[in-house]
Each structure stands twice: as C-alpha cells, then as structure tokens.
C-alpha cells in the first residue's frame, strides 16, 4: 500500500529519470513532459551505470530537491551474468544515493518478485521470486531502499505492452508484430494461460501520480483483469484481419499457469485513476505503431 506524503498532488521540483532511453523510461519521460514537469532524462548515453566513475557522475547530477525514478535494467534478466550486471547497476545508484540527499525515489520493479502461488496477488503477497528476473528486482528493491533516507515507492508492473516495446516477448507485442506483417498469430497450445497486461502509458501515468503525491510503499501496476493469450490473439487478429494459429509449445508449459491481481490498493491510492481496457490499449498500440 502507498502512503501519500503529499495529500494533494504537487509538481516535483525536478525528476531525474535513470533509464530514460528505454521503453518504460521513455514513456515516463513523455508523460512528465506532458504534465509540465521538469525532468533530467538519463539514458545510457548520458549515464552508463556499468561504467567506471558512473556513481560519482550521478552524485554530481543529483540535487536535494530531486525526485529520482530508477527504471534502468537489463531485462528480462535470464542468466546469472545478467543478474549480476543488474545488481552492479543498482549498486552504482545506491552509492550515489548514500552520499546525496534526494526528495523521493521511485523504483520500477516487477510483479516477478511475488511468490508464484499468490493468486490473487496483492501488495501484501509474499515476495519470494522463483526466477532470476524476479530475484534481481527483489534484491534491487532492498538495495535501493536501504541506501536512502528519502521516501521510496516500489512500483511493480506486470507484463507491459505498447508500440515501442523492444522485447517482442510472447504476448501482445509479438502478436501485434506478427499480425502487422500479415502473418497468422501463433499461440502455444490453446493459449489458455491467463495473465494481466498493462499498457505502458498507464505505467507512466501511475508513476507520474506517485511522483506528484510523493508516495512511499509498494503498488502493483496491474489492471486487475487477467486475459488468456488466446483471447488477446483473437482481439489483435480481428484488428488486423489475420488468423490465429495454434502451435505446439516449444517446451514444457510455464510453471505459472494463471496470474490474477487484486487492485484494491490502487483504487484506494488513486481513486479516480482507471486502467485502459485491454482492447482499447491494443488498439492504441496498433495506431501508434502503424
């Protein structure tokens, strides 16, 4: 659950976005720009968190009145090497934060931190990741939280989709690209696994609200509606006029069959905010990518 230090939303003095060149970081920057918030966007060109001296460089950039959004990650982290690189990146940020007072820290984490059998997942579900990616985010949450006296918000989005997604993972993003090429959308088996998918614009919107309220705590950035891959494929197939084709799974079925979320905490934290329905979000992604 989030606690709002600003009961009424107020513009942050400046928001430093670490990882502003990425899919999610770029969307957050765009949202803050639209809201008229001053930002200092840092992509890998401006700040390579794995480079020597990057901690001192970041420290030199930070001011006591800054809000910081840490979204930079090598994701999804699938190997031990990627895990260690991500922790090294976080260590760089932690070292800068330890020596520099800031006003607020927002970390873009992941719902992968939760135990697999937590249905429905809430912010109080046990953090017991079963994947390297989830363990990476859980470790980074703890590292960052213990490195600053500033209020810290952990935002834990689920599967994010949007026109600019670079990963092309199984789901809305890959389905849309297949359909855009006029190919049938390939689903594994019956595509019965039900998951929650959130539009990147909504992730950016929630992040902006958290910054404006100077919120502390944890919030899942999820829609509360879980949809099967089959149904997602059907929505996209209809948008593009292509077929859906079932394929044999490339391996055993994923250990996590379905995942549902209870978004009551979001209703309480941001009562007037409502997530973009999946069909509408997919249509927006189609329009933006065409």
């Amino acid at each position: 659950m989030l606690d709002h230090l600003n009961v009424r939303p107020a513009k942050p003095t400046r928001v430093v976005i670490i990882g502003a060149g990425g899919f999610v970081g770029g969307a957050i920057r765009k949202q803050l720009d639209a809201d008229g918030v001053t930002t200092l966007p840092l992509s890998r060109q401006e700040l390579d968190l794995l480079a020597d001296g990057s901690s001192a460089k970041l420290k030199g950039l930070l001011r006591a009145t800054d809000s910081v959004v840490m979204v930079s990650a090598i994701a999804p982290a699938k190997t031990v090497s990627m895990l260690m690189q991500n922790l090294k990146m976080a260590e760089t940020v932690c070292a800068a934060l330890a020596d520099r007072e800031i006003a607020h820290l927002v970390y873009i984490s992941s719902d992968a931190v939760y135990v697999d059998d937590a249905n429905p997942v809430t912010e109080r579900s046990a953090c017991a990741p079963s994947t390297i990616h989830g363990m990476m985010h859980a470790a980074r949450e703890l590292m960052l939280k213990s490195s600053t006296e500033a209020p810290v918000a952990m935002l834990r989005p689920t599967l994010i989709y949007g026109a600019a997604d670079p990963h092309n993972g199984y789901g809305p993003n890959r389905f849309r690209r297949q359909a855009a090429k006029g190919e049938p959308i390939a689903i594994f088996g019956e595509g019965e696994e039900r998951r929650d998918h959130v539009l990147v614009d909504d992730v950016a919107n929630i992040t902006a609200s958290v910054l404006a309220h100077r919120s502390a705590g944890a919030l899942n950035v999820v829609t509360g509606v879980s949809t099967s891959f089959h149904d997602i494929a059907q929505i996209i197939a209809k948008q593009y006029g292509v077929q859906v084709a079932s394929q044999p799974r490339p391996g055993p079925r994923a250990h996590l069959l379905h995942r549902f979320f209870d978004i009551t905490d979001c209703h309480k934290a941001f009562p007037t905010f409502h997530y973009t329905p999946l069909a509408e979000g997919l249509e927006r992604a189609r329009t933006a990518s065409s």
Binding site: P120, R124, H267
Partner: peptide, 24 residues
C-alpha cells in the same frame, strides 16, 4: 485475517469495475 480484508473491499471493487471506471 487475509480473507476478511479481501472481502471487506468487495463493494469498492464492484463500484469501480461496474460504475466508476465508466462514469467518473
């Protein structure tokens, strides 16, 4: 305790899903 907390918010969730999302 967990179940009680979950059910307490049934009306809030229903309100948001069925009414407030479409009619702010």
């Amino acid at each position: 305790v967990k179940s009680s907390r979950h059910r307490r918010d049934w009306v809030l969730r229903t309100l948001h899903t069925e009414v407030l999302a479409a009619n702010p």
